[in-house]
Design a protein around this nucleic acid. Structure first.
Length: 754
DNA sequence: TGACCTTCCATTTTT
DNA sequence: TGGAAGGTCA
């Protein structure tokens, strides 16, 4: 029984979404129109009122975060009676299918998942071996070509596979070799997960029928505008006629065309699934009237789109601010002074603010300015936890333990920690593999018997392999925490880290502890879960650096990362030709339209206040050049906006508006939380801190625990130091940017006078 | 093996 | 301009 009436508090179209049955359903849901609400309430209604078995419902999303949110809301709506409802990403669902049924198409149960870095690694090796140093065969191009092919559901070995452009034939050959290597290694890359699943379903009608009538009977697909061709094929296979299919999407928010997402899937839904019922959700619950109006004026200028107008019965709110500044530095000053002003006048916290930009490189100028004012910030989607070297090492240990035939992980861990197995040995193993036509892991075994490998390397290689085989023998039955601890302990990895006096080693240990903690959480959640399942799960996680509402920090991210999020105050910077629209998209009509949608997505993230800005000159690749306001700004409805410093929109003329005034308050509103000691309790802004810093700290006086000041990073505490002769380093915990390793001779730290 | 130097690259990146 | 990655040297 439902613990909550799923129809309560819904508007009429949302109710329709919940109640509709008997034919395919397409929900066109505008930004902030409560689509997740409609989707989860529909599921609650299926289970509670229509008696549908939870085990026959599948909700598919693009991110783990979205899937988690759906599960979370269902728990609230259904409680225990919702157990068994599946919600996951395309990729995670496919992994589960392949682990369960992959043997039907000859796939090993121990297959390993290669991420983008692994793909790039393998392709790089191929290019190197083939001696194709040419730019035409730049690994990035091959990585891209591979993505294009596979997102359409084409294996490079298929007879109809083609790579366009120069040397397409040769490139295709390389991609085929890549695919061969993966097959040999028992590995699938991200795109393969989808592609291979679709092929498996095509070849196994009985299995597809079972899924269609059983666990995937009721199918709900989120963000349908972002599906690529293989994903679309998957949906069509599993949905059958689509009578129990619901797709939710918004063509205006399609921003992943460059990754193979195809808006036409949503546009031709009614043709693919006849008798489709279309419901539009147009009431917005997020933004003020002015923000909606401004966003609409931008998106409506795309004449090729089907019109849809969001409305709100909330207030008009403040006008959207359009601010022009002379340079990118002034733009950063404008953003930060506005943050400080709103913090003071409207009592807002750092976490209320978000700054969006088109390219990552744009963050730097703003970061510098935020630090100068001691404003804590986080770059969302920046360095990812699972991309860190020590985490990858740990995961490669897991991979090597669980997939004995797989070379990439094995190669990575072989000499980490250092075991005296260097590049020369690796090359010789490569040679052995070629000579004997055996896989790389097999060649390693042979190498322990071969004279060309130095005796010491042979010995340590042998020792390592004996140990690894021992772990492999039982790895399948061990829980993740135990296996991780065993691998990192017995391999000497942790011991080496303990001994390492590099100040960063401490951070690495903490990261590994965090990974073990994550594994522990997994065990609590899935008491029966194996290490293999844990590895699958973390292999498919993109960012652990999610928007973290607990920590009170200003949020910075690219426009792409902003999708799906919302913030009370949003700054959208760099509204300039060549940036937004980006140079690489300016001459392609489809890509240009996507840039416009990107701007629209960014604007509709704002709840209460939205400020858009551009600079008339910007430093790019170390060169200062004039810039022209974005063409999109010409479409901005002036009725809902306030222009400051803007003199010539759309004319393309260079002009020079006034620089913004310096921030009007002298003291940062935010006290860094980590401060200790009575005299350091107060906030420090640039002026006072410079005054407070009495002298530069001499090298020999740098001691852990000292509170210091750095001209760029602000206040911090020394956490450790190391001595490498000339290059002595200190590790400092800053309140703005976290841990930083600084070379002592450049550290430039000051001490406070109290 | 690691420190240091050189060279290359610079759009976005749900998994 | 700055960072990452690869190469070189001790």
């Amino acid at each position: 029984m439902a613990t909550h009436d799923p129809l309560e508090g819904l508007n009429p179209p949302q109710r329709e979404v919940v109640l509709h049955e008997g034919s395919p359903l397409l929900v066109l849901a505008g930004a902030g129109s409560g689509k997740t609400r409609a989707l989860t309430h529909r599921i609650a209604h299926l289970v509670g009122a229509r008696g549908v078995a939870p085990g026959s419902i599948l909700a598919v999303t693009f991110t783990n975060k979205a899937a988690g949110e759906i599960r979370e809301r269902l728990r609230g709506l259904l409680g225990e009676s919702g157990r068994g409802i599946r919600a996951g990403t395309f990729h995670s669902i496919c992994v589960r299918l392949l682990r369960a049924y992959g043997d039907r198409i000859g796939l090993t149960r121990e297959f390993t998942i290669y991420d983008e870095a692994d793909r790039s690694q393998v392709l790089k090796a191929l290019v190197r071996e083939a001696n194709l140093g040419d730019d035409t065969f730049h690994p990035n191009r091959l990585v891209h070509a591979m993505g294009v092919l596979k997102s359409r559901g084409i294996d490079p070995r298929d007879s109809d596979a083609e790579v366009p452009g120069t040397a397409g034939e040769r490139k295709l050959e390389l991609l085929r070799e890549y695919q061969e290597r993966l097959t040999q290694a028992g590995a699938l890359d991200f795109d393969d997960l989808l592609l291979v699943t679709v092929r498996m379903l095509r070849q196994n009608e009985a299995l597809t029928d079972y899924l269609r009538t059983g666990p995937f009977h009721h199918l709900l697909i989120d963000e349908f505008q972002d599906t690529n061709s293989v994903q679309h094929q998957f949906v069509r296979l599993v949905a059958g006629g689509g009578d129990r299919l619901m797709a939710v999407g918004d063509e205006d928010q399609s921003i992943y065309g460059w990754r193979g997402a195809d808006v036409s899937h949503i546009l031709r839904f009614e043709r693919d699934f006849p008798r489709t019922r279309v419901i539009k959700l147009e009431q917005n619950y997020r933004s003020t009237g002015n923000i909606l109006k401004a966003a609409h004026s931008i998106i409506a200028a795309d004449k090729t789109r089907r019109d849809k107008t969001l409305w709100t019965d909330g207030s008009q709110g403040e006008p959207v601010l359009l601010r022009a500044t002379p340079t990118d530095l002034d733009e950063a000053r404008f953003v930060v002074s506005e943050i400080l002003r709103l913090a003071r006048v409207e009592n807002r916290r750092p976490r209320d603010f978000a700054i969006f930009y088109r390219t990552n490189a744009q963050s730097r100028a703003i970061e510098d300015e935020l630090r100068r004012w001691n404003l804590p910030y986080i770059i969302v989607g920046g360095t990812r936890f699972y991309d860190r070297a020590e985490i990858k090492d740990a995961l490669c240990y897991l991979r090597a333990a669980l997939s004995p035939g797989e070379p990439v992980a094995l190669r990575r861990i072989l000499n980490r920690p250092a075991r005296g197995i260097g590049a020369t040995t690796l090359e010789r193993v490569d040679a052995i593999a070629r000579e004997h036509r055996v896989s790389w892991p097999e060649a390693l075994g042979i190498a322990t018997q071969r004279p060309e490998i130095t005796p010491s390397s042979r010995k340590s290689l042998d020792k390592f392999l004996v140990w690894l085989r021992e772990v492999q023998a039982t790895a399948g039955d061990v829980h993740p925490v135990a296996l991780l601890e065993r691998l990192l302990g017995e391999s000497g990895y942790l011991a080496a880290l303990e001994k390492d006096d590099d100040p960063e080693a401490q951070g690495r240990r903490e990261n590994l502890d965090e990974l073990i903690r994550v594994a522990g959480e997994f065990e609590t959640r899935e008491p029966e879960g194996t290490a293999r399942q844990f590895l699958d799960e973390v292999s498919l996680v993109a960012d652990s650096d999610d928007v973290d509402e607990q920590r009170d920090r200003v949020n910075m991210m690219t426009l792409h990362t902003a999708k799906g999020l919302e913030f009370p105050v949003v700054f959208l910077v760099g509204l300039e030709e060549q940036l937004l629209p980006h140079v690489r998209s300016m001459n392609l009509p489809l890509a240009l339209a996507e840039e416009r949608r990107l701007l629209y997505v960014g604007m509709t993230r704002a709840r209460e206040r939205l400020a858009i800005s551009y600079a008339d000159a910007r430093v790019l690749h170390g060169e200062r050049r004039p810039s022209v306001p974005s063409r999109f700004l010409a479409d901005l409805d002036r009725e809902c906006a306030k222009f400051v410093g803007v003199t010539s929109l759309g004319s393309g003329q260079y002009h020079r508006p006034a620089a913004p005034a310096a921030p009007s308050i002298q003291r940062s509103a935010f006290v860094p939380p980590a401060s200790k000691g009575p005299s350091q309790e107060r906030a420090i802004d640039r002026e006072t801190s410079q005054e407070a810093v009495r002298k530069l700290l001499p090298t020999d006086e740098m001691k852990p625990g000292m509170v210091v000041f750095h001209p760029t990073f602000g206040r911090g505490t020394i956490r450790g130091s190391s001595d490498y002769g000339e290059s002595k380093k200190v590790l400092v915990q800053f309140s703005t940017v976290g841990l930083k390793k600084l070379l002592v001779k450049q550290a430039n730290l000051g001490v406070f006078a109290d």
